[in-house]
Design a binder for these strands. Structure first.
Length: 589
DNA sequence: CCGGGGGCGTC
DNA sequence: ATCGGAG
DNA sequence: CTCCGATGACGCCCCCGG
């Protein structure tokens, strides 16, 4: 099949709003493909080449792609960047400049789906000296021989953002239409949850049919899609959603970890660890392996928990930034293991021996987890309380915060509280104090810069650069970028509101490491809420005050919706006040 | 040989 | 991670 | 309610260039 045919379908899908129509267009595309092609197309449609648990990246993104487009077309780099800022879409940039160039150059040959897959796979394998240049040249070649529309989607595949309104769920819908029939929708989704491999699901459906899908089993070594949770800011509402009674568990601030155990495997292969996005964490936490083998009483199984940083001497949980030092580390592992010790706190069991647990309700899984785990100094069970009493739940929440947790996870006890990927049906609900503005300090920051929006924000700002005020120096020190919490009306107002402050270069009073696309004289003040203050290498607020080379920033910042028209820039939250908020959060009474 | 830009994954 | 829009 | 796609801070590794 020609890639041209695929992108034609993408074009149609991109321009439709109806979800059902999108599904049917995808179904049309799928039914015209061979099984091999189908598999590839399914991956490409997710902006990838293979399932997420396979360690494969293109190693190129915005900048490298712009460079490749430049090499393919020799259109001035500054012009390309401006075009990107204006359209907010690398695909559009590629298509537009190629459209102009195509008049002089001819298509060399038609790109097939298989040809594209092979080229991209080659690209992803390249590493080492000269690899950047190789990638850039290869991509330039691809862009050069691509039609404008092909180039558009090539660029989008490379950055992994297709933006046609289709993601996994819609693909599963379309596969169901073509190969399974509505009555089998659940079976299709279950197969995806078990395998985490949408290409494999497509392939099995295509080659063997839906009955073969039903034979799939949870298997050690094959990661399952992680179950997610909804959010709610009121414990009474949560209790109500849960039907008046629920399990409440500490929500630990660390890395989600799905652990596969096979004691019969050869030495070094008995444990496999997967992150929430199914990245392989096995080599990064080797010191846990024997503690897990020791704690788990079955021969094989799959258990899930949170890997949290701890102070080994006191047993206290440490901030998330501590475990960040462990994540993705390849070098200096021994030192990091010493310096940043971690513990695994378990909260679920998905396979226990030969027993598949995912279709059992939560209480039964918890019971099995408690049966099969013997806690030790590095492996523990999550702290849990089952209650129908809101006050009890509330004080449990306060205890969780006091012990350094983010808040609570609430889990349904109902018969349908099975383990399901995604956030489905309010089976799990998280409750964090930052969901309530009265429980956390909001902050009033000054807009000092802005960044061009992408995609649906192409005609406005994507994010604002926010600063606190430092009265001693009469300076504005950046604290964070702000891009969440705006609704469409806010977004469309922003350019107009900020126009009076727009200036050509950074204001003399603004201290920033970051280079914004637009600069403003300090004036407009917005209210911001976040989870906590973090040490920041990227922001200048109170830089060097608490830690050499680090400023302060905000974790999960978002706009509350309040424009502080009543405040001038000098009435904004001061850098000193942010330091105080940071100090206050250290004592988590 | 080291610093920084770029990429990618965690939350 | 959080959030808002749209079906 | 579900699904999608905007956006955040930050830490590690890679490659490249001074």
């Amino acid at each position: 099949m020609l890639f041209e045919e695929v992108v034609r379908a993408y074009e149609k899908i991109e321009s439709t709003a109806s979800r059902l129509e999108m599904r049917d267009m995808l179904a049309d595309l799928f039914s015209g493909a061979s099984c091999d092609e189908l598999k590839t197309i399914v991956y490409l449609t997710t902006g990838r080449l293979c399932p997420e648990f396979v360690d494969m990246e293109f190693g190129v993104a915005d900048k490298q792609i712009l460079k490749a487009i430049y090499e393919a077309t020799r259109v001035d780099m500054g012009h390309l960047e401006a075009l990107y800022r204006k359209t907010g879409d690398l695909g559009a940039v590629a298509a537009m400049v190629l459209m102009e160039k195509k008049q002089s150059s001819l298509f060399t040959e038609s790109l097939t789906v298989e040809g594209l897959r092979a080229a991209l796979e080659e690209l992803s394998k390249k590493s080492g000296k000269g690899s950047q240049q190789y990638k850039s040249r290869t991509l330039a070649g691809l862009f050069h021989s691509a039609s404008p529309v092909e180039a558009k989607y090539l660029a989008r595949i490379l950055v992994g953002k297709m933006r046609i309104g289709v993601a996994v769920m819609t693909i599963l819908d379309a596969l169901t239409v073509v190969f399974a029939g509505d009555e089998n929708r659940q079976a299709v989704e279950r197969a995806y949850n078990i395998t985490s491999d949408i290409g494999l699901v497509a392939e099995i459906l295509c080659t063997k049919g839906v009955e073969a899908l039903k034979d799939l089993r949870v298997q050690v070594g094959h990661p399952l899609k992680a179950m997610l949770a909804e959010r709610l800011g009121d414990i009474g509402d949560i209790m109500q959603k849960m039907g008046g009674r629920a399990a409440f568990e500490y929500k630990y601030d660390g890395l989600r970890m799905q652990v596969h155990i096979d004691k019969g495997a050869p030495e070094g292969g008995k444990i496999k660890m997967f992150s929430r996005q199914l990245e392989d964490l096995t080599p990064q936490f080797p010191e846990l392996h024997h503690w897990i083998l020791n704690a788990f009483e079955e021969e094989k199984g799959i258990i899930e928990g949170e890997c949290v940083p701890v102070d080994i001497t006191t047993g206290e949980f440490l901030p998330f930034q501590v475990i960040s030092r462990r994540r993705g580390r390849k070098y200096g592992l021994d030192g990091a293991i010493e310096e940043f010790p971690v513990k695994l706190v378990l909260f679920d069991v998905l396979l226990s021996g030969d027993k598949e647990m995912i279709d059992l309700p939560f209480p039964e899984r918890r019971k099995e987890l408690e049966r099969v785990i013997g806690p030790n100094e590095r492996v523990d069970l999550s702290t849990i309380l089952i209650t129908d009493n809101t006050d009890e739940a509330q004080s449990f929440f306060m205890e969780a915060l006091a012990s350094g947790c983010e808040g609570l996870m609430t889990k349904s006890l109902a018969d349908d509280s099975v383990y399901r990927a995604g956030n489905r049906g309010w089976i799990w609900i998280k409750y964090k104090k930052e969901y309530r503005s009265e429980m956390v300090d909001t902050v009033d920051l000054v807009v000092v810069g802005a960044f061009a929006g992408k995609g649906r924000r192409a005609d406005t700002y994507g994010a604002l650069l926010m600063a606190s005020y430092n009265p001693e120096e009469n300076r504005y020190e950046t604290v964070c970028k702000l891009g969440s919490g705006f609704d469409d009306s806010h977004l469309s107002l922003l350019p107009e509101m900020l126009k009076p402050y727009l200036q050509k270069a950074k204001d003399r009073r603004v201290e920033s490491i970051m280079e914004a696309d637009y600069w403003f004289s300090p004036g407009l003040v917005l209210e911001i809420i976040g989870a906590e203050i973090t040490h920041s290498p990227a922001h200048t607020c109170a830089r060097d005050v608490l830690k050499e080379g680090a400023g302060l920033s905000i974790r999960f910042p978002r706009f509350t919706g309040r424009f502080r028209d009543d405040k001038g820039p000098e009435d904004a939250t001061t850098s000193q006040e942010i330091v105080q908020i940071y100090r206050a959060q250290l004592k988590k009474t």
